[in-house]
Each structure stands twice: as structure tokens, then as C-alpha cells.
Computed example of a mutant assay.
Amino acid sequence: MQPEPKRRSNRDRTEATRADLIRAARKLFTEKTYAETGTPEIAVAAGVTRGALYHHFADKRALFAAVVEQEAASVAAEVDRASPPSLSARDALVAGSDAYLSAMRVPGRTRLLLIDGPAVLGRAGMDEIDSRHANRSLREGLVAAMRAQSMIRLPVEALTALLAAAFDRAALAIEAGAPGEDYRTVLMALIDGLSLA
């Protein structure tokens, strides 16, 4: 006699449906843009009804915010993996910088995080998301470097915001075909310019 297949809990089904919606929406938002994507096609691509979509997300903007949050978390995870505490503060900043530029090369990511994200969610909404993810990683790296006395002490929030903007501009330029090594060289010079060594 065959054992009965394990039944998924309501929570498992809810999480699976939510993941399917986010995955389908990400694909459509990067292929067509946020503005050109409708909720009916997202529901079809996810294999759910529109009612199920609206059960999980209040509207298309809320679904987009979930997609952006997931992308930002993925970028931060790559940065964190590349810059473990075992590295010196400067080496962690360099490794994290390289990881950020690499992570932003994932197709569609610059559109989601740097173009459509601010346009749809507003600068304040993107700043909130960034503060939980890539900017958090950058801020922690800068604080560690200042504590290790390997970097000039500067107002950390302002420094984080300005360096993050430089990284974002680099990612956009690289996405548009600019030489990545040129942007990396300048970013490393910025980091080294803050060094006390």
C-alpha cells in the first residue's frame, strides 16, 4: 500500500502562491516594464485567478513592491556573502562593492531597482527598501572601517547615501554598455580616498 502523499498546509500553499505571483510579476515587469504589465496577465502567468492575486496583494503596486523587496534582498545577500567579518574592513568594502556590481548585472535588476522602483514607489519608498538591504550592508561596512580606524570619520548616513548613489550610477552605466572596469576603478579610488592608511 502506497503512503498517502503529504498534504501541504494552508501556510505552505499561501507561500507557494505568493512566490508564484512574485516570480511571474518579476518576469513580466522586466520584459515589459511596470506600466505595460496588467494584473490579468500576471495572474495568468502565475497560474492563479485575479481574485487570488488580490487576496495576496492589495494592487499591482503592492505586488511590485514585493518584487523589488525580493530583488533588493538578493543583492544584499550577495554583498554579505562576499564580505564576511573575517576580511579587513577595507577588503570587505572592496569585495562588497564588486559583489554589488556583479549582482546588478542580473537581467532586469537595474530596471526594477534603479528605474521603475523609484518611479513607482517613490524615492522615500525605495530608500526604505534600500535601508533594509544594500544600503544596510554598505552602512555596516563603512561603520566597521571607521571603527577599525582605517577610514576617515564622516557622517555615516550622508556617506552611505552618496556612495550608494555612485554605485547605482555605475550599475546603470554598465547596464547601458559602459566599461565596467572603468567604473570599478573610480569606485575603488573613492573608497581608497577615504582611507587613513
Rank of each mutant, 00 (worst) to 15 (best):
P40C: 02
R109E: 07
P107M: 06
L162T: 15
S150H: 08
T30H: 15
R26A: 07
A16L: 09
I152T: 12
F64K: 04
K32H: 13
A124Y: 11
V186A: 13
P118N: 01
L190Y: 11
M151V: 02
E175Q: 13
M104L: 11
L87C: 12
R50Q: 12
A95W: 08
L28R: 07
P5C: 09
M188R: 10
A166K: 06
T39Y: 03
Y54A: 09
A134V: 03
I191R: 06
A164F: 14
V48W: 11
A197T: 10
Y183W: 15
G125Y: 06
D116A: 05
S88E: 08
K27F: 12
P40H: 08
R26T: 07
I22E: 00
L154W: 14
S137Q: 07
A173N: 06
L63E: 03
L138E: 04
G180K: 05
F167G: 05
E4W: 07
R13D: 13
Q149V: 10
N135T: 15
V68A: 12
S97K: 04
M188K: 10
E78P: 15
L142G: 05
D12E: 15
A25N: 05
A89P: 00
A65M: 04
S83K: 03
A173I: 00
R90P: 01
I129D: 00
A161H: 14
M1H: 14
L163M: 12
D182R: 08
A148N: 04
V44K: 01
G141W: 06
G117W: 04
D182H: 09
L187D: 03
I42Y: 08
S97E: 08
E78M: 15
G177N: 06
T160E: 02
A173M: 05
Y54P: 08
L163S: 05
T30Y: 14
A45M: 01
A99Y: 11
T17S: 14
R11F: 07
M146A: 02
L114N: 09
I191E: 10
P155W: 02
I115M: 13
G193L: 12
A77W: 08
A170W: 01
L93N: 06
R18C: 09
G125M: 02
R81K: 10
T49H: 07
R81T: 07
V156D: 03
D91L: 00
V106K: 10
G117L: 00
D12T: 13
G125I: 01
F167I: 00
D80S: 14
V68L: 03
R61D: 09
E69P: 11
Y100P: 08
A165M: 01
A24D: 04
T49D: 06
L21K: 02
